[in-house]
Amino acid sequence: MSERIFGVFLLLLSAGGIFIGWDLKAPISYEPVGPRAFPLLVFTLLGICSLGLVLSKRPATTWAPSPVLLRVGGMFVAVLAYALLFDKLGFVISTALMSIPLSRYFGGTWKQSLLAGAGLGVILFLLFDKLLDVALPIGFWLKPLLG
């Protein structure tokens, strides 16, 4: 069932892709094949394949039990929040905030998780920003303090 639903999603996606792609025309053309041919080919083939997913008999997908799925979803949200706050809170704080729930999910106690969060935030910042010269965001809250 999951694969069929996914097939429907892809079918809609390819329809949208063809719809948008139809208008992709170069103002002045120097070559016989313009910018829209390849995307249209890809989306058409994707449409055919996803029709195959919808119509053929698909094996059932085994999803993890719902408490596990909930945890996986929670982890995804934590990482997404990390991505959103990465430069706003700065590397150290955002990494610590992301690490604590992930640590908890992987069996760390509260104490271990706090330790992992603080440790990773500080150590990785020193490693990358200071030692390896990969610039990382400090965050808006520290900038005024540092002048």
């Binding site: 690490s99 640590s103 992992a116």
Partner: peptide, 10 residues
Amino acid sequence: NWVLVPGVAA
């Protein structure tokens, strides 16, 4: 894993 996974993510 409780330190490895957040480390890899970061």
